[in-house]
Design a protein around this nucleic acid. Structure first.
Lengths: 151, 151
DNA sequence: TGCGATTAAATCGTGCGCGATTTATATGTG
DNA sequence: CACATATAAATCGCGCACGATTTAATCGCA
Protein backbone atom coordinates (compact mmCIF):
# COMPACT_ATOMS: atom_id res chain seq x y z
CA UNK A 1 0.00 0.00 0.00
CA UNK A 2 2.72 2.41 -1.08
CA UNK A 3 2.31 6.03 -2.06
CA UNK A 4 2.59 4.95 -5.68
CA UNK A 5 -0.33 2.67 -5.18
CA UNK A 6 -2.40 5.56 -3.89
CA UNK A 7 -1.48 7.67 -6.87
CA UNK A 8 -2.50 4.78 -9.04
CA UNK A 9 -6.14 4.91 -8.13
CA UNK A 10 -6.22 8.64 -8.81
CA UNK A 11 -4.60 7.91 -12.13
CA UNK A 12 -7.05 5.15 -13.00
CA UNK A 13 -10.05 7.31 -12.09
CA UNK A 14 -8.66 10.15 -14.15
CA UNK A 15 -7.94 7.85 -17.08
CA UNK A 16 -11.59 6.81 -17.12
CA UNK A 17 -12.75 10.38 -16.58
CA UNK A 18 -10.67 11.78 -19.43
CA UNK A 19 -11.33 8.85 -21.77
CA UNK A 20 -15.03 9.43 -21.29
CA UNK A 21 -14.70 13.06 -22.34
CA UNK A 22 -12.52 12.15 -25.31
CA UNK A 23 -15.11 9.62 -26.49
CA UNK A 24 -17.96 12.09 -26.09
CA UNK A 25 -16.03 14.66 -28.10
CA UNK A 26 -15.32 12.09 -30.82
CA UNK A 27 -18.99 11.15 -31.15
CA UNK A 28 -20.07 14.77 -31.43
CA UNK A 29 -19.34 15.41 -35.13
CA UNK A 30 -20.89 12.04 -36.04
CA UNK A 31 -24.12 12.70 -34.18
CA UNK A 32 -24.41 16.46 -34.53
CA UNK A 33 -26.01 16.54 -37.96
CA UNK A 34 -28.79 14.30 -36.71
CA UNK A 35 -29.28 16.57 -33.72
CA UNK A 36 -28.25 13.88 -31.23
CA UNK A 37 -25.98 14.04 -28.22
CA UNK A 38 -24.06 10.99 -27.01
CA UNK A 39 -26.42 10.29 -24.06
CA UNK A 40 -29.37 10.60 -26.44
CA UNK A 41 -27.65 8.16 -28.78
CA UNK A 42 -27.31 5.70 -25.88
CA UNK A 43 -31.04 5.93 -25.25
CA UNK A 44 -31.70 5.27 -28.93
CA UNK A 45 -29.47 2.18 -28.83
CA UNK A 46 -31.48 0.90 -25.87
CA UNK A 47 -34.74 1.45 -27.76
CA UNK A 48 -33.44 -0.04 -31.02
CA UNK A 49 -32.63 -3.14 -29.05
CA UNK A 50 -36.02 -3.22 -27.34
CA UNK A 51 -38.76 -0.75 -28.13
CA UNK A 52 -41.44 0.38 -25.72
CA UNK A 53 -39.52 0.54 -22.47
CA UNK A 54 -40.43 2.61 -19.45
CA UNK A 55 -38.34 5.53 -18.24
CA UNK A 56 -37.25 3.45 -15.28
CA UNK A 57 -36.34 0.52 -17.52
CA UNK A 58 -34.13 2.72 -19.68
CA UNK A 59 -32.59 4.14 -16.53
CA UNK A 60 -31.78 0.65 -15.25
CA UNK A 61 -29.87 -0.15 -18.40
CA UNK A 62 -27.99 3.15 -18.56
CA UNK A 63 -27.64 3.78 -14.81
CA UNK A 64 -29.47 7.08 -15.07
CA UNK A 65 -32.15 8.71 -12.92
CA UNK A 66 -35.54 9.88 -14.10
CA UNK A 67 -34.38 13.42 -13.34
CA UNK A 68 -31.81 12.98 -16.10
CA UNK A 69 -33.95 11.00 -18.51
CA UNK A 70 -37.20 12.94 -18.41
CA UNK A 71 -35.82 16.11 -19.99
CA UNK A 72 -33.60 14.12 -22.35
CA UNK A 73 -36.59 12.08 -23.57
CA UNK A 74 -38.58 15.26 -24.04
CA UNK A 75 -35.83 16.54 -26.32
CA UNK A 76 -35.83 13.25 -28.26
CA UNK A 77 -39.59 13.59 -28.56
CA UNK A 78 -39.32 17.20 -29.73
CA UNK A 79 -36.81 15.99 -32.35
CA UNK A 80 -39.39 13.45 -33.52
CA UNK A 81 -37.43 10.32 -32.68
CA UNK A 82 -39.63 8.94 -29.88
CA UNK A 83 -43.13 9.05 -28.52
CA UNK A 84 -43.92 9.08 -24.76
CA UNK A 85 -47.14 7.55 -23.51
CA UNK A 86 -48.56 6.85 -20.10
CA UNK A 87 -49.06 3.13 -19.62
CA UNK A 88 -52.84 2.58 -19.42
CA UNK A 89 -52.21 -0.46 -17.19
CA UNK A 90 -50.24 1.64 -14.71
CA UNK A 91 -50.60 5.35 -15.12
CA UNK A 92 -47.52 6.00 -13.03
CA UNK A 93 -45.30 4.68 -15.76
CA UNK A 94 -44.36 6.34 -19.02
CA UNK A 95 -43.53 4.06 -21.94
CA UNK A 96 -41.21 5.29 -24.66
CA UNK A 97 -41.67 4.18 -28.27
CA UNK A 98 -39.62 4.80 -31.38
CA UNK A 99 -41.32 6.78 -34.12
CA UNK A 100 -40.87 5.88 -37.77
CA UNK A 101 -38.16 8.52 -37.90
CA UNK A 102 -36.53 7.01 -34.83
CA UNK A 103 -36.45 3.56 -36.40
CA UNK A 104 -35.04 4.90 -39.64
CA UNK A 105 -32.29 6.72 -37.78
CA UNK A 106 -30.73 3.38 -36.97
CA UNK A 107 -29.71 2.81 -40.59
CA UNK A 108 -28.72 6.42 -41.06
CA UNK A 109 -26.26 6.04 -38.18
CA UNK A 110 -24.86 2.69 -39.31
CA UNK A 111 -21.51 4.29 -40.06
CA UNK A 112 -21.07 5.63 -36.55
CA UNK A 113 -19.83 2.44 -34.88
CA UNK A 114 -17.50 1.76 -37.80
CA UNK A 115 -16.00 5.24 -37.54
CA UNK A 116 -15.53 4.89 -33.81
CA UNK A 117 -14.03 1.45 -34.18
CA UNK A 118 -11.33 2.89 -36.39
CA UNK A 119 -10.70 5.64 -33.86
CA UNK A 120 -10.01 3.12 -31.11
CA UNK A 121 -7.03 1.70 -32.90
CA UNK A 122 -7.02 -1.65 -31.15
CA UNK A 123 -8.16 -5.13 -32.03
CA UNK A 124 -11.52 -6.53 -31.00
CA UNK A 125 -9.92 -9.11 -28.70
CA UNK A 126 -8.25 -6.37 -26.70
CA UNK A 127 -11.39 -4.29 -26.73
CA UNK A 128 -13.53 -7.07 -25.36
CA UNK A 129 -11.09 -7.76 -22.54
CA UNK A 130 -10.84 -4.06 -21.77
CA UNK A 131 -14.61 -3.71 -21.72
CA UNK A 132 -14.95 -6.59 -19.27
CA UNK A 133 -12.30 -5.18 -16.95
CA UNK A 134 -13.81 -1.71 -16.93
CA UNK A 135 -17.26 -3.13 -16.26
CA UNK A 136 -15.79 -5.10 -13.38
CA UNK A 137 -14.29 -1.93 -11.94
CA UNK A 138 -17.60 -0.14 -12.35
CA UNK A 139 -19.51 -2.90 -10.60
CA UNK A 140 -16.98 -3.12 -7.77
CA UNK A 141 -17.05 0.61 -7.22
CA UNK A 142 -20.83 0.75 -7.38
CA UNK A 143 -21.12 -2.02 -4.84
CA UNK A 144 -18.55 -0.51 -2.50
CA UNK A 145 -19.71 3.09 -2.81
CA UNK A 146 -22.49 2.97 -0.21
CA UNK A 147 -20.01 1.68 2.39
CA UNK A 148 -17.32 4.33 1.91
CA UNK A 149 -16.81 6.16 5.17
CA UNK A 150 -16.50 9.91 5.02
CA UNK A 151 -13.40 9.47 7.24
CA UNK B 1 -15.71 -6.45 -39.09
CA UNK B 2 -18.69 -8.45 -37.86
CA UNK B 3 -21.83 -7.09 -36.26
CA UNK B 4 -20.49 -8.21 -32.90
CA UNK B 5 -17.43 -6.12 -33.47
CA UNK B 6 -19.58 -3.06 -34.05
CA UNK B 7 -21.52 -3.73 -30.90
CA UNK B 8 -18.25 -4.02 -29.08
CA UNK B 9 -17.24 -0.43 -29.55
CA UNK B 10 -20.62 0.73 -28.30
CA UNK B 11 -20.13 -1.52 -25.34
CA UNK B 12 -16.63 -0.24 -24.63
CA UNK B 13 -17.73 3.38 -24.87
CA UNK B 14 -20.62 2.68 -22.58
CA UNK B 15 -18.40 0.81 -20.12
CA UNK B 16 -16.18 3.89 -19.84
CA UNK B 17 -19.18 6.20 -19.68
CA UNK B 18 -20.88 4.27 -16.90
CA UNK B 19 -17.66 3.57 -14.98
CA UNK B 20 -17.00 7.29 -14.95
CA UNK B 21 -20.38 7.98 -13.40
CA UNK B 22 -19.95 5.21 -10.87
CA UNK B 23 -16.57 6.63 -9.82
CA UNK B 24 -17.95 10.14 -9.51
CA UNK B 25 -20.79 8.85 -7.35
CA UNK B 26 -18.34 6.95 -5.16
CA UNK B 27 -16.18 10.01 -4.57
CA UNK B 28 -19.15 12.13 -3.62
CA UNK B 29 -19.59 11.06 0.03
CA UNK B 30 -15.82 11.29 0.58
CA UNK B 31 -15.55 14.83 -0.80
CA UNK B 32 -18.92 16.23 0.18
CA UNK B 33 -18.07 17.24 3.74
CA UNK B 34 -15.19 19.32 2.47
CA UNK B 35 -17.47 20.96 -0.07
CA UNK B 36 -15.57 19.53 -3.04
CA UNK B 37 -16.81 17.93 -6.24
CA UNK B 38 -14.75 15.35 -8.10
CA UNK B 39 -13.64 17.78 -10.85
CA UNK B 40 -12.67 20.27 -8.14
CA UNK B 41 -10.70 17.52 -6.42
CA UNK B 42 -8.85 16.87 -9.67
CA UNK B 43 -7.87 20.53 -9.85
CA UNK B 44 -6.62 20.36 -6.25
CA UNK B 45 -4.50 17.31 -7.10
CA UNK B 46 -2.95 19.24 -9.98
CA UNK B 47 -2.16 22.17 -7.68
CA UNK B 48 -0.85 19.98 -4.85
CA UNK B 49 1.57 18.55 -7.37
CA UNK B 50 2.60 21.96 -8.68
CA UNK B 51 1.29 25.19 -7.23
CA UNK B 52 0.87 28.43 -9.12
CA UNK B 53 -0.31 27.20 -12.50
CA UNK B 54 -2.25 29.18 -15.05
CA UNK B 55 -5.83 28.35 -15.99
CA UNK B 56 -4.59 27.13 -19.33
CA UNK B 57 -1.91 25.00 -17.70
CA UNK B 58 -4.45 23.29 -15.48
CA UNK B 59 -6.65 22.77 -18.52
CA UNK B 60 -3.81 21.14 -20.42
CA UNK B 61 -3.36 18.59 -17.66
CA UNK B 62 -7.04 17.84 -17.19
CA UNK B 63 -8.16 18.29 -20.82
CA UNK B 64 -10.60 21.02 -19.84
CA UNK B 65 -11.46 24.38 -21.40
CA UNK B 66 -11.31 27.75 -19.68
CA UNK B 67 -15.10 27.89 -20.00
CA UNK B 68 -15.22 24.91 -17.65
CA UNK B 69 -12.37 25.92 -15.36
CA UNK B 70 -13.12 29.58 -14.78
CA UNK B 71 -16.38 29.05 -12.89
CA UNK B 72 -15.00 25.97 -11.13
CA UNK B 73 -11.95 27.94 -9.92
CA UNK B 74 -14.19 30.74 -8.75
CA UNK B 75 -16.05 28.22 -6.61
CA UNK B 76 -12.77 26.87 -5.23
CA UNK B 77 -11.79 30.46 -4.47
CA UNK B 78 -15.12 31.15 -2.77
CA UNK B 79 -14.54 28.02 -0.67
CA UNK B 80 -11.18 29.44 0.36
CA UNK B 81 -9.00 26.73 -1.18
CA UNK B 82 -7.29 28.81 -3.90
CA UNK B 83 -6.36 32.33 -4.84
CA UNK B 84 -6.55 33.66 -8.43
CA UNK B 85 -4.17 36.40 -9.54
CA UNK B 86 -3.43 38.05 -12.84
CA UNK B 87 0.16 37.42 -13.85
CA UNK B 88 1.91 40.83 -13.73
CA UNK B 89 4.27 39.63 -16.47
CA UNK B 90 1.36 38.85 -18.78
CA UNK B 91 -1.92 40.30 -17.72
CA UNK B 92 -3.82 37.93 -20.01
CA UNK B 93 -3.00 34.99 -17.80
CA UNK B 94 -4.49 34.11 -14.44
CA UNK B 95 -2.30 32.15 -12.04
CA UNK B 96 -3.92 29.93 -9.42
CA UNK B 97 -2.32 29.47 -6.00
CA UNK B 98 -3.25 27.26 -3.08
CA UNK B 99 -4.22 29.04 0.10
CA UNK B 100 -3.14 27.77 3.51
CA UNK B 101 -6.49 26.04 3.75
CA UNK B 102 -5.97 24.52 0.32
CA UNK B 103 -2.60 23.11 1.31
CA UNK B 104 -3.97 21.70 4.55
CA UNK B 105 -6.80 20.00 2.71
CA UNK B 106 -4.31 17.61 1.22
CA UNK B 107 -3.71 15.90 4.56
CA UNK B 108 -7.36 16.05 5.48
CA UNK B 109 -8.16 14.07 2.33
CA UNK B 110 -5.38 11.53 2.75
CA UNK B 111 -7.92 8.79 3.39
CA UNK B 112 -9.71 9.35 0.10
CA UNK B 113 -7.33 7.43 -2.18
CA UNK B 114 -7.16 4.58 0.33
CA UNK B 115 -10.95 4.34 0.46
CA UNK B 116 -11.21 4.36 -3.31
CA UNK B 117 -8.46 1.80 -3.64
CA UNK B 118 -10.49 -0.61 -1.57
CA UNK B 119 -13.53 0.08 -3.67
CA UNK B 120 -11.73 -0.94 -6.84
CA UNK B 121 -11.23 -4.47 -5.64
CA UNK B 122 -8.31 -5.30 -7.87
CA UNK B 123 -4.56 -5.49 -7.44
CA UNK B 124 -2.24 -2.65 -8.31
CA UNK B 125 -0.62 -4.60 -11.12
CA UNK B 126 -3.96 -4.98 -12.86
CA UNK B 127 -4.82 -1.37 -12.16
CA UNK B 128 -1.65 -0.06 -13.72
CA UNK B 129 -2.15 -2.10 -16.86
CA UNK B 130 -5.77 -1.03 -17.06
CA UNK B 131 -4.82 2.62 -16.62
CA UNK B 132 -2.28 2.40 -19.43
CA UNK B 133 -4.75 0.73 -21.79
CA UNK B 134 -7.48 3.26 -21.10
CA UNK B 135 -5.06 6.13 -21.60
CA UNK B 136 -4.03 4.57 -24.90
CA UNK B 137 -7.67 4.40 -25.98
CA UNK B 138 -8.17 8.02 -24.92
CA UNK B 139 -5.14 9.19 -26.88
CA UNK B 140 -6.10 7.19 -29.96
CA UNK B 141 -9.62 8.54 -29.92
CA UNK B 142 -8.45 12.10 -29.32
CA UNK B 143 -6.05 11.88 -32.21
CA UNK B 144 -8.60 10.31 -34.56
CA UNK B 145 -11.53 12.51 -33.57
CA UNK B 146 -10.76 15.48 -35.83
CA UNK B 147 -10.69 13.17 -38.86
CA UNK B 148 -14.01 11.42 -38.29
CA UNK B 149 -16.27 12.09 -41.24
CA UNK B 150 -19.86 12.98 -40.53
CA UNK B 151 -20.75 10.32 -43.16
C1' DT C 1 -63.67 -0.56 1.38
C1' DG C 2 -60.49 2.87 3.04
C1' DC C 3 -56.21 4.71 4.05
C1' DG C 4 -51.15 4.55 4.86
C1' DA C 5 -47.03 3.04 2.47
C1' DT C 6 -44.81 2.40 -1.76
C1' DT C 7 -43.62 3.30 -6.45
C1' DA C 8 -42.85 6.09 -10.95
C1' DA C 9 -42.04 10.28 -13.11
C1' DA C 10 -41.51 14.91 -13.06
C1' DT C 11 -39.64 19.20 -11.08
C1' DC C 12 -36.12 22.16 -9.05
C1' DG C 13 -31.54 23.80 -7.95
C1' DT C 14 -26.54 23.16 -8.49
C1' DG C 15 -22.39 22.04 -10.87
C1' DC C 16 -19.96 20.19 -14.86
C1' DG C 17 -18.52 20.55 -19.91
C1' DC C 18 -18.42 22.40 -24.36
C1' DG C 19 -18.62 25.53 -28.57
C1' DA C 20 -18.97 30.15 -29.91
C1' DT C 21 -18.23 34.63 -28.77
C1' DT C 22 -16.26 38.57 -26.30
C1' DT C 23 -12.82 41.25 -23.80
C1' DA C 24 -8.36 42.43 -22.75
C1' DT C 25 -3.56 42.04 -23.31
C1' DA C 26 0.56 41.00 -25.96
C1' DT C 27 3.14 40.45 -30.28
C1' DG C 28 4.92 41.39 -34.71
C1' DT C 29 5.41 43.82 -38.95
C1' DG C 30 5.21 47.86 -41.76
C1' DC D 1 4.72 54.16 -33.56
C1' DA D 2 0.32 52.06 -35.48
C1' DC D 3 -2.37 48.63 -36.49
C1' DA D 4 -3.49 43.76 -37.63
C1' DT D 5 -2.96 39.34 -35.59
C1' DA D 6 -2.75 36.21 -31.95
C1' DT D 7 -3.43 34.58 -27.38
C1' DA D 8 -5.68 33.95 -22.51
C1' DA D 9 -9.51 34.08 -19.88
C1' DA D 10 -14.15 35.08 -19.24
C1' DT D 11 -18.98 34.96 -20.68
C1' DC D 12 -23.17 32.90 -22.61
C1' DG D 13 -26.38 29.32 -23.92
C1' DC D 14 -27.34 24.54 -23.96
C1' DG D 15 -27.48 19.82 -22.37
C1' DC D 16 -26.18 16.30 -19.02
C1' DA D 17 -26.28 14.37 -14.16
C1' DC D 18 -27.57 14.16 -9.58
C1' DG D 19 -30.00 14.65 -4.93
C1' DA D 20 -34.04 16.18 -2.83
C1' DT D 21 -38.60 17.05 -3.27
C1' DT D 22 -43.23 16.83 -5.27
C1' DT D 23 -47.15 14.81 -7.63
C1' DA D 24 -49.80 11.14 -8.92
C1' DA D 25 -51.10 6.37 -9.09
C1' DT D 26 -50.98 1.74 -7.15
C1' DC D 27 -50.63 -1.61 -3.53
C1' DG D 28 -51.32 -3.77 0.88
C1' DC D 29 -53.64 -4.73 4.68
C1' DA D 30 -56.87 -4.15 8.34
Amino acid sequence: MSADCLKLDNALCFAIYSANHAITRAYKPLLDKHGLTYPQYLVMIVLWDRDGQTVGGIGDELFLESSTLTPLLKRLEAAGYVRRERDPKDERQVVVFLTQKGQELRKRLAEVPRQMLKAFGCGSAGMEKLRAEINAVRDNVSKAAPHLASS
